[in-house]
Design a protein around this nucleic acid. Structure first.
Lengths: 146, 146
DNA sequence: ATAAAATCAATCGCACGCGATTAAATTTTG
DNA sequence: CAAAATTTAATCGCGTGCGATTGATTTTAT
């Protein structure tokens, strides 16, 4: 069997470079996120909070494709750091409302330069980045809508 | 500030869909890998073993972008399942040789249909898959060569 | 030849990430 | 209205994934 038709060769997988890229790019964020004492997952959680100010755990998870078993402990850590508060919803006692604090809002200023710092160290042509972005969102919808 | 120029909006990140896609696609493998009692990382480790038969932990890690702190326990689990053996190299006592067993070779037959099963449930046009593949490897080399 | 530096696997601590389950609250159904 | 089904967050167990360190071995430099 010619190597390029070996279905179980690592190089012939689409998933593998996706898996490896995701890991490596998160690693690239690390030095900048370390300055803010955030992990990557905490960082994208804060992005959701910066945008929405107050949501239930459920909805944070909807944006991030994460569930409460990941988010509950993570949000407790963000609460300990003072960036969010957690309290039961009054209308529906099942839901837990996560709200951004002033300190959480302030953190946004310190995070503002991260995206450009990262794109500086990842030298991918803008056109390719755009293509990648589009296909990834297509793939994501393929993977989640069925 | 117009939303599309908000640098900290989740939708304006390239990393996020990468991160989310990687997670979701690994999840898509799960039902098929469950039948073989393998995790995704164990599966790609077996791919390396099917291809190379015998290597040091170091080299497994080079192919997978993983280090010994992840691989050592993982390889011990694969050893427990009987798919690989682990023994110190004779020439260089620092190195540990990982070798595929007959049982490990046999597992390959059962894994052969997985790639097609997965591409069946991910309906991405082949041309886009090809583009994605190429850009991901470009990005991967950008991320790891500096 | 020996001291210093480098290599390698292993270990540790911590933070995800997820499937499965639990418990409480709410909604739907009969 | 009451029982059943659903929704929600939390918890548990397990397997990564990684930075930092350790200890053994090998290589390099003096």
């Amino acid at each position: 069997m010619p190597e390029q038709f070996n279905p179980l060769k690592l190089e012939n997988q689409l998933c593998f470079p996706l898996y490896a890229c995701a890991k490596e790019i998160v690693k690239a964020y690390k030095p900048y996120l370390d300055e803010l004492d955030l992990t990557y997952t905490q960082y994208i959680t804060m992005m959701v909070m910066w945008e929405h100010k107050e949501l239930r755990v459920k909805d944070v998870g909807k944006y991030l494709y994460l569930d409460s078993s990941t988010l509950t402990p993570l949000l407790k850590r963000l609460e300990e750091k003072g960036y969010v508060t957690r309290k039961r919803s009054a209308e529906d006692e099942r839901g837990l409302l996560v709200s951004i604090t002033d300190s959480g809002e302030a953190l946004r200023d310190r995070a503002l330069t991260i995206p450009q710092k990262l794109s500086a160290c990842v030298n991918l042509e803008p056109e390719k980045a755009q293509t990648l972005y589009k296909i990834l969102y297509e793939l994501l919808s393929e993977l989640t809508t069925e």
